[in-house]
């Protein structure tokens, strides 16, 4: 699992590659945590190369969403595959994010 952060023109893009399972989520945390301070911006979570998301992965997304809500920022999830969309749907999180 790889998590790559790029910043451009007032927005932050976080690209996930591989399976965002529990060990991967632990690895991703040090990359994601500094972004909580920048949650007043638009943060795009690019899932184009993500093949799986676990509860731990969902919690990362939710932590970012909470920070964005508090700071007036925005979280956008893009390029999710049908399996991951289905996880968001079955857990009731689909309508909490802007997904495109």
């Amino acid at each position: 699992m790889k998590t790559k952060v790029t910043k451009e023109e007032g927005q932050i893009i976080v690209a996930f590659t591989g399976r965002l399972d529990t060990p991967a989520a632990q690895e991703a945390n040090p990359v994601i945590n500094p972004l909580l301070d920048e949650a007043d911006k638009t943060i795009i979570l690019d899932c184009k190369e993500m093949s799986y998301i676990s509860s731990s992965g969902l919690r990362i997304f939710l932590t970012l969403r909470k920070a964005a809500e508090d700071k007036g920022g925005k979280i956008i999830i893009q390029n999710i595959n049908d399996d991951i969309r289905s996880v968001f749907m079955m857990t009731g999180f689909l309508n909490l994010f802007e997904i495109r």
Binding site: S54, S55, L58, R59, L62, V87, M90, T91, G92, F93, N95, L96
Partner: peptide, 10 residues
């Protein structure tokens, strides 16, 4: 699944 988190929207 092993999903152990849901929203109150479910």
């Amino acid at each position: 699944t092993d999903l152990d988190i849901v929203s109150s929207s479910v």
